[in-house]
Design a protein around this nucleic acid. Structure first.
Length: 267
DNA sequence: ACACGTGTTATGCG
DNA sequence: TCGCATAACACGTG
């Protein structure tokens, strides 16, 4: 699920329902999700503390834990979700949505959890376990957030090297927050082939990419996620471009499955 | 049974 | 060391 818009939704969940209560228990027993810590290390750093703020840059989230405490970093990976449960175990926020309504999900795969003094819990639910929890996460290496990047920052991110433009859009150290689906949507809207080397893009190409990114990220944020957009009606075998009806092409670019209009986004 | 995947990162090569 | 490409990671889903 998570690209920047989904992560922002998860951050907002923590801000609404996860702040201001003392942490009395921590399940950090999943040594893959909590790598490189040993079980108990994250718990010992957090018990007695309180989440006081929730931040995000790109797809990375972190929570302040009060004066002198570590930052709690949470990355959702490919399949992570934040769920907050009330003391009686019923969900109060986060989790699964269907047509804008919250529905009860399957929480067999809680991989990390905080228990608050009132019995409520904050869970990282993550079937694939590619999410990650760490203390004082390294956010300094991330590029500017895709939702707030300036034109100068965007141009600078595409200015160097010869990588395919899609690979650069996916590079979190260049611009933080764009994932595979958003990247395809941006390239499609800007009519740019994903494999074009960044050093071959015209100023006009870069300009269209920036505008397309703003639109794609903005509308996905408004709707709470890339997957809820109904966006990407062209991402399946036999699909045709919604604009000109040409067949969509599919291949691997930047290490990810990519779809593009064979005519409007010709190399 | 088998391929695929909305993310990150270690490894390898020029 | 840098820039880039690829495999690996874990595991549910179609």
């Amino acid at each position: 699920m998570p690209e920047l818009p989904e992560v922002e939704s998860a951050r907002a969940v923590i801000e609404r329902a996860g702040l201001g209560r003392e942490i009395v228990g921590v399940d950090d027993s999943d040594t893959y999700v909590c790598r490189p810590y040993l079980p108990g290390q994250i718990r010992d750093a957090l018990v007695g503390r309180t989440l006081v703020a929730a931040h995000r840059r790109g797809k990375s989230m972190w929570c302040d834990t009060g004066e002198g405490g570590p930052e709690l970093g949470i990355h959702l990976g490919m399949s992570g979700k934040i769920v907050i449960a009330a003391p009686d175990g019923s969900e109060i926020d986060g989790g699964d949505y269907w047509e804008g309504r919250r529905v009860h999900g399957d929480y067999r795969w809680s991989r990390f959890a905080l228990t608050f003094a009132d019995g409520g819990r904050l869970m990282l639910v993550d079937p694939r376990r590619l999410g990650r929890v760490r203390l004082d996460p390294p956010i300094a290496s991330l590029g500017p957030d895709a939702a707030t990047v300036t034109p100068a920052q965007f141009r600078a991110a595409l200015a160097r090297g010869t990588a395919p433009v899609k690979a650069r859009l996916l590079d979190q150290e260049a611009i933080a927050g764009i994932g595979n689906l958003l990247a395809d949507q941006i390239l499609w809207a800007a009519r740019v082939n994903p494999g074009r080397p960044v050093d071959e893009l015209s100023a006009d190409d870069v300009d269209r990419l920036l505008r397309a990114m703003r639109r794609a990220v903005g509308s996905a944020l408004k709707q709470g996620g890339v997957h809820t957009l109904g966006l990407i009606p062209y991402r399946f075998a036999g699909a045709h471009c919604p604009r000109d009806g040409a067949p969509m092409a599919k291949s691997t670019v930047g290490g990810r499955t990519s779809w593009w209009c064979s005519v409007e986004q010709a190399f």
